[in-house]
């Protein structure tokens, strides 16, 4: 009886302690290397809701756009369809369609031109919290996606490195972008052929950093130089664009050069990506 009363009195504290212990134990397990990853199992479950919510969001966004367009057309009809405006609207539509057509053609041509087998995927969600930068794509284990597969994207006719697959669910995967704090890519300067390691700065607003470039290479490197994957003992195949040199940092007491890179891929407008299915280990 006394135990029950004591439990009832300290119910809040005991529950808090239990929840904290569960969280801490999970953290302890998650931050170590594990063969069985509970996040991957749960991710598959949560993915169902993510995909549904994403689809509903797109539906409403599309509906709002449609209503706005309908309203504009009605106004034009009421004003006896001003000929000039009508032509302008048509011209705009054509320009939009042409732009969309070019974008799709570029993506299609890009996929066909790739020397690797690839799987197109759409970015359906961003990391919901503030501290991590994962991107959720709508392809998972059933489509052949595996952990550590490289992910690239085509933007403005350039194919750039996005990152690597970090978690795989049944129908979705989480991609660790190249700017993530835990991302390291073996890289090479395209023109001078000097090698280094590209590390993320942990934030999408920050740039990438290329580390460990030989100091003797200083005179051969200039701002604007292109950096590509080297393929050396790496998950990533050779020759993928990573970014361009924005600044060269080298202090007299340091043994190597560091460089700030501007990523090739603009992550703020990333919609479609390609998972390289053959290049992974």
């Amino acid at each position: 009886m006394r135990v029950r009363e004591s439990f009832a009195r300290h119910r809040n504290g005991l529950t808090l302690a239990l929840l904290v212990v569960i969280s801490v134990v999970s953290l302890g397990i998650s931050t170590d290397a594990m063969t069985l990853r509970p996040t991957a199992i749960w991710q598959s479950f949560v993915a169902i809701f993510q995909q549904s919510a994403s689809a509903v969001g797109r539906f409403f966004a599309g509906t709002v756009t449609s209503i706005r367009e309908l309203s504009q057309l009605r106004e034009q009809y009421d004003e006896l369809l001003d000929q000039v405006r009508q032509y302008e609207t048509i011209a705009d539509d054509i320009a939009l369609l042409r732009s969309e057509n070019e974008r799709l053609r570029e993506a299609l041509g890009f996929e066909q031109a790739l020397p690797y087998s690839s799987l197109p995927a759409r970015v359906i969600a961003k990391e919901p919290g503030s501290f991590f930068e994962g991107l959720t794509i709508n392809q998972g284990r059933t489509a052949g996606v595996r952990r550590y597969m490289p992910v690239i994207a085509s933007q403005d006719g350039m194919q750039g490195l996005v990152g690597r697959v970090e978690e795989v669910g049944l129908s979705t995967s989480v991609v660790m972008p190249v700017f993530d704090h835990d991302s390291f890519v073996a890289a090479r300067l395209l023109r001078s052929r000097h090698e280094g390691l590209v590390a993320g700065e942990g934030s999408s607003e920050g740039m990438l950093t290329m580390l460990y470039v030989a100091k003797s290479a200083r005179d051969e490197i200039s701002v604007g130089d292109t950096v590509i994957t080297s393929g050396m003992r790496s998950l990533f195949p050779e020759g993928l664009l990573i970014g361009t040199v924005e600044a060269i940092l080298g202090r007299p007491y340091e043994t190597s050069l560091n460089m700030e890179l501007d990523p090739t891929v603009d992550f703020s407008r990333l919609e479609y990506v390609f998972v390289l299915t053959e290049a992974a280990e």
């Binding site: 809040n12 529950t15 808090l16 929840l19 904290v20 569960i22 969280s23 801490v24 134990v25 999970s26 953290l27 302890g28 397990i29 998650s30 931050t31 509970p38 996040t39 749960w42 991710q43 479950f45 949560v46 993510q50 969600a125 990391e127 919901p128 919290g129 501290f131 991590f132 930068e133 994962g134 959720t136 970090e166 978690e167 989480v174 660790m176 993530d180």
Partner: peptide
């Protein structure tokens, strides 16, 4: 508060790159 926070945080942990338990805690 604590139970809702735990559940919400756990779902966040499942959806991204955060180690399991991070947002839950």
């Amino acid at each position: 508060g604590q139970v809702s926070g735990f559940v919400g945080g756990l779902v966040l942990d499942f959806m991204g790159l955060a180690p399991l338990g991070f947002y839950a805690l």
